[in-house]
Design a protein around this nucleic acid. Structure first.
Length: 201
DNA sequence: TAGTTGATCGTCT
DNA sequence: GACGATCAACTAA
């Protein structure tokens, strides 16, 4: 699939990202993330996400706005990138309206286009399955780092498109991964049976 | 195959 | 000064 024209696909706009975080999280599944670098494009189909709301103790925004998380408080349609564990980045889609600290973490995508570049970015990776099945791996493959923090998803560097006629998918939910609070909410969503979902029980 | 650990550093206390 | 929305390499069996 090459997205040279947009007859079958439309780019998600501000009205989409401004919706409630849980709704945006579910609807992002099956959409396509497009990343353009020097005219080359990489595409991944979003298969796994997690929702983080401001009233959620597991969210970075729970205790209010700081220098690190301020992008989460912008209106929906921006990219929030943070650095974690001393070596990895995680990418989030900012949702809802300005002043609300909420976002959707992209946990895994299915590689669709530009895999040759992803392999270059993911040294030592042998198979497509391991290329992007985790938030840190996905950011490495797509060359997402802090320079993209606050990027506008309505522009052309990085954005998301959806099919007018999307195939039917089964959405499954579970508790979120790697957190120690907020474990009562099942706000991790993924496409049931998709092999590119990260490996966790 | 399951469980453990080292790498590595920005952010917040 | 401690720890984390992680990953890969290593160990044991």
């Amino acid at each position: 699939m090459i997205l040279n024209n947009f007859i079958d696909y439309y780019k998600l706009q501000k009205d989409f990202y401004g919706q409630k975080t849980i709704k945006v999280a579910k609807e992002l599944l099956g959409s396509y993330l497009v990343r353009k670098i020097n005219g080359v494009q990489m595409i991944g189909r979003i298969v796994e996400v997690e929702a983080y709301r401001q009233d959620d103790p597991a969210s970075h925004s729970y205790k209010g706005k700081t220098e690190r998380n301020k992008v989460m408080f912008l209106e929906g349609g921006y990219l929030y990138v943070y650095f974690t564990f001393g070596m990895y980045h995680c990418a989030n889609i900012v949702t809802e309206n300005e002043g609300t600290g909420s976002a959707v973490l992209l946990r895994a995508v299915e590689p669709v286009n530009g895999m040759n570049i992803m392999y270059l970015n993911r040294k030592n990776c042998k198979t497509d399955l391991n290329l992007t099945n985790g938030p840190g791996k996905f950011c490495l493959a797509f060359q997402i780092d802090k320079s993209l923090n606050g990027a506008n998803l309505l522009e052309n560097e990085i954005f998301i498109v959806k099919k007018y006629r999307q195939e039917k998918i089964n959405i499954e939910s579970s508790t979120r991964i790697g957190i120690t609070v907020g474990t009562d909410s099942r706000w991790r969503f993924f496409i049931r049976g998709n092999p590119y979902v990260s490996k966790h029980k």
